[in-house]
Computed example of a mutant assay.
Amino acid sequence: MKRTVLLISGLVFCIASYANNAKEKKGLNEQINAAFHYLVQGDTSRASKLLAEQERLKDDNHQLSKLAIMLQIELKNNDTAERLLLSFESRFADNPDTFAFAADAWRDLGHQAGVFSKFGFYKKGVQAKLRAGEVGPDNAEYVALRAGASAHGSSYGADASLQKTLTDKAIALDKKWGYIAKLNYAQNTDDQQSGLAAAKEAVEEFHDDFVVLERVAQYFWTIDNLAQAQQTFAQACEYPPVQSWYREVKWINACYQVAVFSQEHGLAVKPGEQALNRLLATYKLPTTQNVEIAGLLLDIAQQENSQLAIQRMNQAITHTNDKALVKLATRRLAMLD
Rank of each mutant, 00 (worst) to 15 (best):
L333H: 06
I180S: 01
K327G: 01
A268R: 05
D174C: 08
G120V: 03
L213S: 06
D190A: 10
R91G: 06
K58P: 08
G266K: 07
W251K: 01
A199T: 02
D208I: 07
T288L: 07
L162D: 09
P96S: 08
T4C: 12
A100D: 13
Q302K: 15
E214M: 07
V326Q: 10
R331H: 11
S45M: 14
Q311W: 08
Q192S: 11
A316G: 03
Q163F: 13
D208K: 10
H207I: 01
A35F: 09
K284F: 05
L333C: 14
E89R: 12
S155N: 08
T222Y: 15
W245C: 04
L226W: 03
A334I: 12
I293A: 06
A281V: 04
F210H: 03
T287L: 09
Q231L: 09
G178I: 04
R312W: 03
K26V: 05
N277P: 03
Q235R: 15
F88P: 01
Q112A: 05
S90C: 08
K2P: 12
Q54F: 11
G110W: 00
Q72R: 07
Q289C: 00
A316H: 01
L308A: 13
A259K: 02
G178S: 04
I293Y: 15
R331Q: 12
N277S: 09
P286K: 01
Y185T: 09
A229G: 06
G266C: 04
V115Q: 05
L51C: 08
E273R: 00
W245M: 00
G272F: 10
W177I: 00
M70F: 11
M335C: 10
Y219F: 15
Q228C: 07
W221C: 00
Q228F: 04
F261V: 03
Q274P: 02
Q263G: 06
K26C: 09
T165M: 14
R312C: 04
R215D: 14
N139D: 15
A19V: 09
S154I: 03
L173A: 03
L328A: 05
Q303F: 07
